[in-house]
Protein backbone atom coordinates (compact mmCIF):
# COMPACT_ATOMS: atom_id res chain seq x y z
CA UNK A 1 0.00 0.00 0.00
CA UNK A 2 1.38 3.39 -0.88
CA UNK A 3 0.88 5.95 1.83
CA UNK A 4 1.88 9.02 -0.14
CA UNK A 5 -0.80 11.43 -1.28
CA UNK A 6 1.43 14.02 -2.90
CA UNK A 7 1.31 14.03 -6.69
CA UNK A 8 4.17 15.66 -8.49
CA UNK A 9 2.84 18.14 -11.01
CA UNK A 10 3.12 21.69 -12.30
CA UNK A 11 1.66 25.06 -11.56
CA UNK A 12 1.27 27.82 -9.04
CA UNK A 13 -0.42 25.57 -6.51
CA UNK A 14 2.85 23.82 -5.77
CA UNK A 15 4.52 27.14 -4.95
CA UNK A 16 1.74 28.28 -2.66
CA UNK A 17 2.97 28.11 0.95
CA UNK A 18 1.39 25.22 2.86
CA UNK A 19 0.28 27.45 5.75
CA UNK A 20 -1.45 29.98 3.50
CA UNK A 21 -2.84 27.23 1.28
CA UNK A 22 -4.38 25.50 4.30
CA UNK A 23 -6.04 28.74 5.35
CA UNK A 24 -7.40 29.32 1.84
CA UNK A 25 -8.87 25.83 1.63
CA UNK A 26 -10.51 26.18 5.04
CA UNK A 27 -11.92 29.61 4.22
CA UNK A 28 -13.35 28.40 0.91
CA UNK A 29 -14.83 25.29 2.55
CA UNK A 30 -16.65 27.49 5.06
CA UNK A 31 -17.69 29.92 2.36
CA UNK A 32 -19.64 27.39 0.32
CA UNK A 33 -22.13 27.21 3.17
CA UNK A 34 -22.73 30.97 3.06
CA UNK A 35 -25.52 32.40 0.88
CA UNK A 36 -23.96 32.27 -2.57
CA UNK A 37 -25.50 32.20 -6.02
CA UNK A 38 -25.39 28.65 -7.46
CA UNK A 39 -23.39 30.09 -10.36
CA UNK A 40 -20.68 31.01 -7.86
CA UNK A 41 -20.54 27.45 -6.55
CA UNK A 42 -20.21 26.07 -10.05
CA UNK A 43 -17.47 28.59 -10.83
CA UNK A 44 -15.63 27.26 -7.80
CA UNK A 45 -16.14 23.66 -8.95
CA UNK A 46 -14.91 24.55 -12.42
CA UNK A 47 -11.90 26.41 -11.03
CA UNK A 48 -10.83 23.52 -8.80
CA UNK A 49 -11.37 20.87 -11.49
CA UNK A 50 -9.42 22.95 -14.01
CA UNK A 51 -6.75 23.51 -11.37
CA UNK A 52 -6.46 19.77 -10.84
CA UNK A 53 -6.40 19.19 -14.60
CA UNK A 54 -3.62 21.71 -15.07
CA UNK A 55 -1.60 20.38 -12.14
CA UNK A 56 -1.89 16.64 -12.62
CA UNK A 57 -3.53 15.91 -15.96
CA UNK A 58 -7.09 15.01 -16.93
CA UNK A 59 -7.04 11.34 -15.94
CA UNK A 60 -5.94 12.11 -12.42
CA UNK A 61 -8.24 15.11 -12.18
CA UNK A 62 -11.33 12.97 -12.82
CA UNK A 63 -10.45 10.47 -10.09
CA UNK A 64 -12.17 12.30 -7.19
CA UNK A 65 -15.32 12.48 -9.27
CA UNK A 66 -15.26 8.72 -9.67
CA UNK A 67 -14.80 8.35 -5.92
CA UNK A 68 -17.97 10.32 -5.13
CA UNK A 69 -20.04 9.10 -8.07
CA UNK A 70 -21.99 6.62 -5.96
CA UNK A 71 -22.96 9.34 -3.51
CA UNK A 72 -23.90 11.74 -6.30
CA UNK A 73 -26.28 9.17 -7.75
CA UNK A 74 -27.92 8.66 -4.36
CA UNK A 75 -28.26 12.41 -3.96
CA UNK A 76 -29.87 12.80 -7.37
CA UNK A 77 -32.26 9.92 -6.71
CA UNK A 78 -33.26 10.73 -3.15
CA UNK A 79 -33.24 14.49 -2.76
CA UNK A 80 -36.15 15.20 -5.18
CA UNK A 81 -38.18 12.27 -3.85
CA UNK A 82 -38.03 13.45 -0.27
CA UNK A 83 -38.19 17.19 -0.86
CA UNK A 84 -41.88 17.63 -1.67
CA UNK A 85 -42.70 21.35 -1.34
CA UNK A 86 -43.05 23.71 -4.22
CA UNK A 87 -44.25 23.63 -7.79
CA UNK A 88 -43.97 20.40 -9.74
CA UNK A 89 -41.77 20.31 -12.82
CA UNK A 90 -41.52 16.57 -13.40
CA UNK A 91 -44.38 14.16 -12.94
CA UNK A 92 -45.42 10.64 -13.84
CA UNK A 93 -49.19 10.58 -14.03
CA UNK A 94 -50.34 12.27 -10.86
CA UNK A 95 -47.12 11.49 -8.99
CA UNK A 96 -44.74 14.42 -8.62
CA UNK A 97 -41.18 13.29 -9.35
CA UNK A 98 -39.51 16.59 -8.62
CA UNK A 99 -40.40 20.13 -7.70
CA UNK A 100 -38.62 23.28 -8.83
CA UNK A 101 -37.45 23.94 -5.28
CA UNK A 102 -36.14 20.36 -4.92
CA UNK A 103 -34.08 20.69 -8.10
CA UNK A 104 -32.71 24.05 -7.02
CA UNK A 105 -31.80 22.53 -3.69
CA UNK A 106 -30.16 19.55 -5.41
CA UNK A 107 -28.19 21.89 -7.67
CA UNK A 108 -26.71 23.68 -4.66
CA UNK A 109 -25.97 20.45 -2.77
CA UNK A 110 -24.18 18.83 -5.70
CA UNK A 111 -22.07 21.90 -6.48
CA UNK A 112 -21.20 22.41 -2.84
CA UNK A 113 -20.20 18.78 -2.33
CA UNK A 114 -18.10 18.68 -5.49
CA UNK A 115 -16.46 21.97 -4.56
CA UNK A 116 -15.42 20.76 -1.13
CA UNK A 117 -14.22 17.45 -2.53
CA UNK A 118 -11.98 19.12 -5.11
CA UNK A 119 -10.68 21.76 -2.69
CA UNK A 120 -9.51 19.18 -0.17
CA UNK A 121 -8.14 16.88 -2.85
CA UNK A 122 -6.18 19.66 -4.53
CA UNK A 123 -4.63 20.59 -1.20
CA UNK A 124 -3.32 17.12 -0.42
CA UNK A 125 -2.21 16.47 -4.00
CA UNK A 126 -0.10 19.59 -4.22
CA UNK A 127 1.34 19.70 -0.69
CA UNK A 128 3.96 17.20 0.52
CA UNK A 129 2.93 15.44 3.75
CA UNK A 130 5.98 16.83 5.57
CA UNK A 131 4.88 20.37 4.68
CA UNK A 132 1.33 19.74 5.88
CA UNK A 133 2.81 18.56 9.15
CA UNK A 134 5.01 21.66 9.43
CA UNK A 135 2.02 23.85 8.66
CA UNK A 136 0.03 22.23 11.47
CA UNK A 137 2.96 22.83 13.80
CA UNK A 138 3.13 26.47 12.72
CA UNK A 139 -0.53 26.78 13.68
CA UNK A 140 0.28 25.51 17.16
CA UNK A 141 0.11 21.71 16.99
CA UNK A 142 2.49 20.28 19.61
CA UNK A 143 5.66 18.50 18.53
CA UNK A 144 4.46 15.23 20.06
CA UNK A 145 1.17 15.34 18.18
CA UNK A 146 3.00 16.03 14.95
CA UNK A 147 5.33 13.16 15.74
CA UNK A 148 2.40 10.72 16.15
CA UNK A 149 1.29 11.79 12.68
CA UNK A 150 4.74 11.17 11.12
CA UNK A 151 5.21 7.85 12.91
CA UNK A 152 1.79 6.66 11.76
CA UNK A 153 2.88 7.21 8.16
CA UNK A 154 6.07 5.29 8.87
CA UNK A 155 4.05 2.27 10.03
CA UNK A 156 1.27 2.21 7.43
CA UNK A 157 3.26 0.43 4.70
CA UNK A 158 4.85 -2.13 6.99
CA UNK A 159 1.61 -2.99 8.77
CA UNK A 160 -0.16 -3.30 5.43
CA UNK A 161 2.57 -5.60 4.20
CA UNK A 162 2.50 -7.75 7.30
CA UNK A 163 -1.27 -7.95 7.07
CA UNK A 164 -1.09 -9.39 3.57
CA UNK A 165 1.54 -11.90 4.71
CA UNK A 166 -0.60 -12.90 7.68
CA UNK A 167 -3.57 -13.53 5.42
CA UNK A 168 -1.36 -15.63 3.15
CA UNK A 169 0.14 -17.49 6.06
CA UNK A 170 -3.29 -18.38 7.40
CA UNK A 171 -4.49 -19.34 3.94
CA UNK A 172 -1.68 -21.88 3.63
CA UNK A 173 -2.50 -23.40 7.00
CA UNK A 174 -5.98 -24.62 6.14
CA UNK A 175 -6.28 -28.34 5.68
CA UNK A 176 -8.67 -28.19 2.79
CA UNK A 177 -9.26 -26.11 -0.28
CA UNK A 178 -10.94 -22.83 0.37
CA UNK A 179 -11.89 -19.77 -1.56
CA UNK A 180 -9.24 -17.16 -1.05
CA UNK A 181 -9.03 -13.79 -2.65
CA UNK A 182 -6.76 -10.93 -1.75
CA UNK A 183 -8.26 -8.09 0.26
CA UNK A 184 -11.21 -10.16 1.33
CA UNK A 185 -11.40 -11.83 4.69
CA UNK A 186 -13.76 -14.69 5.18
CA UNK A 187 -15.78 -14.68 8.33
CA UNK A 188 -14.28 -17.85 9.83
CA UNK A 189 -10.78 -16.52 9.30
CA UNK A 190 -11.35 -13.00 10.58
CA UNK A 191 -10.53 -13.61 14.23
CA UNK A 192 -7.23 -15.49 13.62
CA UNK A 193 -6.05 -13.00 11.01
CA UNK A 194 -7.05 -9.91 12.96
CA UNK A 195 -5.52 -11.30 16.17
CA UNK A 196 -2.21 -12.10 14.47
CA UNK A 197 -2.18 -8.70 12.79
CA UNK A 198 -2.79 -6.90 16.07
CA UNK A 199 -0.20 -8.94 17.95
CA UNK A 200 2.44 -8.32 15.27
CA UNK A 201 1.64 -4.59 15.38
CA UNK A 202 1.59 -4.45 19.19
CA UNK A 203 4.95 -6.20 19.38
CA UNK A 204 6.51 -3.31 17.46
CA UNK A 205 5.33 -0.73 20.02
CA UNK A 206 8.01 -1.30 22.71
CA UNK A 207 10.69 -1.24 20.00
CA UNK A 208 9.40 2.06 18.70
CA UNK A 209 9.32 3.50 22.22
CA UNK A 210 12.89 2.29 22.78
CA UNK A 211 14.04 3.82 19.54
CA UNK A 212 12.40 7.17 20.30
CA UNK A 213 14.06 7.34 23.71
CA UNK A 214 17.40 6.10 22.43
CA UNK A 215 17.31 8.87 19.81
CA UNK A 216 16.78 11.45 22.53
CA UNK A 217 13.04 12.01 22.80
CA UNK A 218 12.52 13.29 26.35
CA UNK A 219 15.71 15.36 26.60
CA UNK A 220 15.50 18.76 28.19
CA UNK A 221 17.17 20.68 25.36
CA UNK A 222 14.91 22.59 22.99
CA UNK A 223 14.50 20.52 19.84
CA UNK A 224 15.88 22.10 16.73
CA UNK A 225 14.33 21.50 13.33
CA UNK A 226 15.99 20.15 10.21
CA UNK A 227 13.08 20.99 7.94
CA UNK A 228 11.34 24.29 7.58
CA UNK A 229 8.81 25.90 5.30
CA UNK A 230 10.04 28.56 2.94
CA UNK A 231 7.49 30.84 1.29
CA UNK A 232 9.00 32.19 -1.91
CA UNK A 233 8.29 35.90 -2.24
CA UNK A 234 7.57 36.28 1.47
CA UNK A 235 5.02 34.70 3.73
CA UNK A 236 3.01 37.94 3.89
CA UNK A 237 2.30 37.84 0.16
CA UNK A 238 1.07 34.27 0.45
CA UNK A 239 -1.27 35.10 3.32
CA UNK A 240 -2.50 38.19 1.50
CA UNK A 241 -3.50 35.92 -1.37
CA UNK A 242 -5.19 33.46 0.92
CA UNK A 243 -7.37 36.22 2.37
CA UNK A 244 -8.07 37.87 -0.97
CA UNK A 245 -9.20 34.80 -2.89
CA UNK A 246 -12.19 33.92 -0.65
CA UNK A 247 -13.05 37.60 -0.06
CA UNK A 248 -13.18 38.54 -3.73
CA UNK A 249 -15.10 35.37 -4.46
CA UNK A 250 -17.66 36.16 -1.81
CA UNK A 251 -18.04 39.78 -2.91
CA UNK A 252 -18.78 38.73 -6.48
CA UNK A 253 -21.19 35.87 -5.86
CA UNK A 254 -23.00 36.57 -2.60
CA UNK A 255 -26.76 36.94 -2.59
CA UNK A 256 -27.04 39.34 0.32
Amino acid sequence: MTSGTFIAGRGMLYLFDARAKLLTVLALCVMVFLPLRPLGLWVLVAATVLGAWHATGLRQALQPLRAILFLLVIMILFTPLTYRDGSAVLRVGSFVLATREALENLNVLVARFMGITYLCTLFIWTTPMADINLAFRWYGLSYKAALVFTLAFRFIPSIAESFVMIQDSHALRTSEQQEISRGTVHLTDIVPTVTSALVVALKSIPYLAMSLEHRGLGRRERRTSYRRLVARGGLFTHFLLSVMIPTVFFLVFNTI
Binding site: M1, S3, K144, L147, V148, L151, A152, F153, R154, F155, I156, I159, A160, F163, V164, G183, T184, V185, L187, I190, V194, A197, L198, A201, L202, S204, I205, P206, L208, A209, M210, L212, E213, L217, G218
Partner: peptide
Protein backbone atom coordinates in the same frame (compact mmCIF):
# COMPACT_ATOMS: atom_id res chain seq x y z
CA UNK B 1 6.05 9.68 27.20
CA UNK B 2 7.58 7.79 24.28
CA UNK B 3 5.42 4.77 25.05
CA UNK B 4 2.23 6.76 24.71
CA UNK B 5 3.38 8.26 21.44
CA UNK B 6 4.37 4.82 20.14
CA UNK B 7 1.00 3.33 21.12
CA UNK B 8 -0.96 6.08 19.43
CA UNK B 9 1.16 6.04 16.28
CA UNK B 10 1.10 2.28 15.74
CA UNK B 11 -2.61 1.92 16.47
CA UNK B 12 -3.35 4.86 14.17
CA UNK B 13 -1.48 3.04 11.42
CA UNK B 14 -3.40 -0.16 12.17
CA UNK B 15 -6.70 1.73 11.86
CA UNK B 16 -5.57 3.13 8.49
CA UNK B 17 -4.64 -0.32 7.21
CA UNK B 18 -7.86 -1.91 8.46
CA UNK B 19 -9.94 0.87 6.91
CA UNK B 20 -8.34 0.59 3.51
CA UNK B 21 -7.25 -3.01 3.25
CA UNK B 22 -9.46 -5.23 5.31
CA UNK B 23 -12.87 -5.51 3.86
CA UNK B 24 -15.68 -7.90 4.48
Amino acid sequence: PAMRIALMAVLTAVVVVFTLLVRV
